[in-house]
Simulated scan of single mutants.
Amino acid sequence: MNWERVFTIQNDTEFNEICLDTFHFQMNNVPIYRKYVQYLNRKIDTIDHYTKIPFLPIEFFKTQKILAQNVSSEIIFTSSGTTGMVTSNHFVAQKEVYENSFRRAFEQFYGKIENIAILALLPSYLERTGSSLIYMINDLMEQSKQPESNYFLYNHEELYQTLLQLKAKGTKTILFGVTFALLDFIEKYALTFPELIIMETGGMKGKRKEMIREEVHELLCNSFQVPGIHSEYGMTELLSQGYSYSDGIFKHPSWMKILIRETNDPLTLAANKKTGAINVIDLANRYSCSFIATQDLGKIYEDGSFEVLGRFDQSDIRGCNLLVQ
């Protein structure tokens, strides 16, 4: 596979060509996806555009091994979940592809990694194995040339002092934080650091009562004196992410695309600006499944950006990065 071509897609024509190539590859090589498409009784020769490609329900990652034939996995990412919950497994054939994907997207949205201090307040993720987020942040910390880059499990005083040092030095800083841990931190600490980028990466994880996103963001903005809270749209089943700069509108790299399907007819796509269920195309996911029907609700805009509005009520709560509004 020419990954450089995937990660440097320039237009919709190129995207469509690689989508169709990926679709045929996965039809021929990923048994679960092939069986699903055959079950739908779709005529393969009529699929000439990515909007016609069938999307695999994300629930299959909980019960099936979704991996191309004759390919072994280098790593398995698992979703978080409460005790007794069935979690997703993402069998990743090439760690290098995931690294390429998140490094390029991160640099596209935030600049050179080596110039950024990466701080992480992610206790719930560190206390389990198989987190794709932790894998990404470990790598970003290694790529960073800033000595302050580090994890802060429950040591809030050390995090506070580190933030003060980075502010004084004028170092570009990103703080990745799970929501409940960020709220725990601001109960004791506050500082004026308007240049700080706070990247919210998850919800309450059962540690606090649920709050609407606007309320959480207002508290964080006031405590850090930042203009807004950033967010990442990613999940265990994907190898690519989208980012929001604080307005709740996400953008994604060129090898990823969001489509919206009708909630009452999962095989039909909805019009722009209409609320529906989110379908994700992730071309980095070649050896798994690139066409995933999520349980997230949202809408897309004319420029391809998208908004996440919550989840289906019947969907169990998974370790993703959004708060139900």
Rank of each mutant, 00 (worst) to 15 (best):
N28V: 03
H217W: 04
I260W: 03
G203A: 12
T78L: 04
L297S: 00
R318T: 08
A93I: 04
N272T: 14
C221V: 01
E215G: 01
A293D: 15
P54N: 02
Y245D: 10
Y39H: 07
A93F: 06
Q146M: 13
I32M: 05
R34S: 14
K172M: 12
H90W: 03
F106L: 03
T179E: 15
I197Q: 11
H90Q: 15
V30M: 04
T263R: 04
I32A: 13
M204P: 04
I18E: 06
G84V: 06
Y39F: 05
I116W: 11
S131E: 08
Y125T: 01
W3N: 10
M256F: 15
I134P: 06
K35L: 07
I229E: 05
K62W: 13
R286K: 15
V92E: 13
L119N: 10
K52S: 07
T87Q: 13
N28Y: 02
M85V: 11
K65T: 12
T268L: 11
M235R: 09
L183H: 07
Y110M: 13
S305K: 09
L140M: 07
M211E: 06
I58G: 07
L153Q: 07
G234K: 02
M85R: 08
Q143V: 00
T236A: 09
M204V: 14
I116S: 12
N41S: 03
D247S: 05
F224W: 03
R286P: 00
S305V: 03
G276P: 01
Q38W: 05
G177C: 10
F180H: 10
N28M: 10
M27S: 13
N2Y: 02
I66L: 04
N29C: 07
R318Q: 06
Q325G: 07
Q69L: 11
Q38F: 06
E14H: 03
L267Q: 15
E200L: 08
M211L: 07
W3V: 00
K172Q: 15
A270F: 02
L159P: 01
F291K: 12
D265G: 00
I229G: 02
E74Q: 14
Q225N: 14
D282F: 02
I66T: 12
F91Q: 08
N2C: 04
Y301M: 06
W3D: 10
I249F: 02
L175V: 07
Y110N: 14
K172A: 13
L269C: 09
I44R: 10
A284T: 07
L238F: 06
S231P: 00
D45R: 04
F109E: 13
E158F: 03
H49V: 01
N138W: 11
Q161K: 08
N29Q: 14
K43F: 05
E157N: 05
V178G: 13
I32S: 12
E215Q: 11
V71I: 14
V226D: 03
N70Q: 15
E187S: 14
T63G: 03
Y98M: 10
I118D: 11
F312K: 06
N279W: 09
H156S: 12
N138E: 13
E214V: 04
M85Y: 04
N11A: 06
I53R: 05
N272G: 00
L126E: 13
S80F: 05
T51D: 06
E158W: 00
N321F: 10
R5F: 00
G298T: 01
L121G: 12
K273M: 00
Y233W: 13
K207M: 15
I76N: 02
S124V: 02
